[in-house]
């Protein structure tokens, strides 16, 4: 493992019931190891950031935790359930916003919302009430009859968030939710995230924006599938003796390149 990883016990900010626990989680694609001996614990109500260069295994980690694929070895528990054996039940209680948003371009805003909420088991009056609240809170009402494919990036992101949270999941996975979204929309988005977290939703978010990383309660750095640093933003900057998370990121990537002799991004 490169660098001396920060102590893997949680910082002061996060003590409580764990929502995600992984033990020696590993995923191989043929000869390539995408996630390697990952031990992570994420607590209820936490906003947890997953950082790392392209191809470092962030998406793969999320997909393992969403029970989208089986780990090669090791185990993971999400909302108290084993992802490998109880995947169906895990999926009912989590929300996932993928890097590609997963919206139907040829359905309207309202239809996308209706579809995903029904698939998550909302029906009748409960659904109507929930959707009304939701689209109102996210300002989606004015666009309800617009085709999702014709929305701008910021609106797509809002809609994707609404679709992923209509069923009030306990755990929310956000894979690069703010890629290609303007600063104002990003700020609104983080406001929504914090609102969710304050109501007890646990959030795992990946990002390449360091200002967003600073907003997370705890961070994990991945490199080539390994966990190389873990802690609060302040703990991490202090540990590496850097001024900001961005400097830490660049420093870690530099160390990594020095160790492997290739650009980390080239591992894709």
């Amino acid at each position: 493992m490169s660098g001396s990883a920060v102590d893997t016990t949680p910082g002061m900010s996060a003590v409580g019931t764990p929502t995600v626990v992984t033990r020696a989680l590993r995923k191989e694609f043929g000869a390539r190891v995408a996630v390697d001996s990952l031990d992570l614990t994420i607590y209820r109500g936490e906003v947890f950031g997953l950082l790392g260069p392209n191809g470092s295994g962030k998406t793969t980690t999320i997909r393992l935790l969403c029970a989208l694929m089986a780990p090669t070895s090791g185990s993971a528990e999400v909302v108290g359930l084993d992802v490998e054996t109880q995947g169906e039940r895990v999926r009912a209680r989590i929300g996932y916003m993928s890097q590609r948003y997963g919206l139907y371009d040829d359905l309207t805003v309202a239809e996308n919302l209706r579809f995903y909420s029904t698939v998550y088991g909302l029906h009748g009056e409960a659904r109507t009430r929930r959707l009304a609240e939701h689209s109102c809170a996210l300002g989606l009402d004015e666009r309800r009859n617009q085709l999702a494919g014709t929305l701008s990036g910021g609106w797509k992101q809002r809609l994707a968030l609404a679709c992923a949270t209509a069923h009030e999941p306990e755990m929310l996975f956000l894979d690069e939710p703010t890629a290609g979204v303007d600063p104002a929309a990003r700020r609104d988005f983080w406001t929504s995230i914090y609102a969710l977290a304050s109501r007890g939703t646990t959030i795992l978010v990946t990002t390449h924006y360091m200002d967003e990383a600073e907003r997370c309660q705890r961070l994990a750095f991945l490199s080539r599938g390994h966990l190389i640093a873990l802690g609060t933003p302040r703990e991490i900057t202090a540990h590496f003796g850097q001024a900001s998370i961005e400097d830490v990121f660049i420093e870690l990537q530099r160390q990594d390149e020095a160790q492997y002799g290739v650009a980390a991004g080239g591992s894709r």
Binding site: C66, A67, L68, E88, R89, R91, A92, I94, Y96, S98, Q99, R100, Y101, G102, L103, Y104, D105, Y116, V119, Y120, G121
Partner: peptide, 14 residues
Amino acid sequence: ERGTLEQLVVTPIG
């Protein structure tokens, strides 16, 4: 292609 299949699989649709 559009990534909606992945989104579907992650729902409890079965």
